[in-house]
Design a protein around this nucleic acid. Sequence first.
DNA 1: AGCGTTCTCAACCAATTGGTTGACAATGTG
DNA 2: CACATTGTCAACCAATTGGTTGAGAACGCT
Lengths: 116, 116
Amino acid sequence: MSDQLSRVFAALADPTRRDMVARLTDADATVGELAAPYAVSMQAVSKHLKVLEDAGLVTRTRDAQRRPVHLEAEVFDLMTAWIERYRQRAEERYQRLDAVLAELDETKTPMEETAS
Amino acid sequence: MSDQLSRVFAALADPTRRDMVARLTDADATVGELAAPYAVSMQAVSKHLKVLEDAGLVTRTRDAQRRPVHLEAEVFDLMTAWIERYRQRAEERYQRLDAVLAELDETKTPMEETAS
DNA sequence: AGCGTTCTCAACCAATTGGTTGACAATGTG
DNA sequence: CACATTGTCAACCAATTGGTTGAGAACGCT
């Protein structure tokens, strides 16, 4: 699971982490602020943040005792690129299928109109 | 991890499963065909397929002993919707930031041109 | 009916994950 | 300096994951 794309997908597979990312699109936040809504320890949240950081989704700086967390939205592009690449391949395939069906239709239409 | 979006992200977090999905954009395939390139047992591949199926990324039908696997590309939209939603929120935030900076610039420019 | 092929189910195992608690590092404030 | 605040590190634990092997189900073929 060592490549970044895998880490990004794995990071977002957890609803709590997805929710954190969602909230970070609004504003940077401290670990405590991020932890507040959840019924888990701050240590657990700290671990989640490490996962997000290892995936490159988030960076952490320092402000006195606080560790502000910042979303790095560019990493989304990694996923989007992968998804769109294969979605497009899948769609091309359907277009080829449509073409084949259309061709079948062309060769059939002149012959037998009332076929089952 | 019970919601579908989580299952989809988790499914694609594994490089082997991502590769399977990639190959399935070309054509449907049997379990054996899918297993061929990997140095793992067919049972392991069968498990991977179960993960993909539970995520809704794949459906399996029956053709004699064979279990053809078919990609359900629409599920990609689930991810794309999530990603684009928050990417957009993040971008709006940058636009607000830009606006703030621009405003600061406006109030500053008429006053002090040579400031540090 | 018997055989080969394709694939799944069950049991097991090591590694990883997501959580806990306890100790403590780092920093601002009295 | 002492203390409160904010957060990390380390050890531990239960559940999940990704792999294995062995057994057998489902089907076509002769």
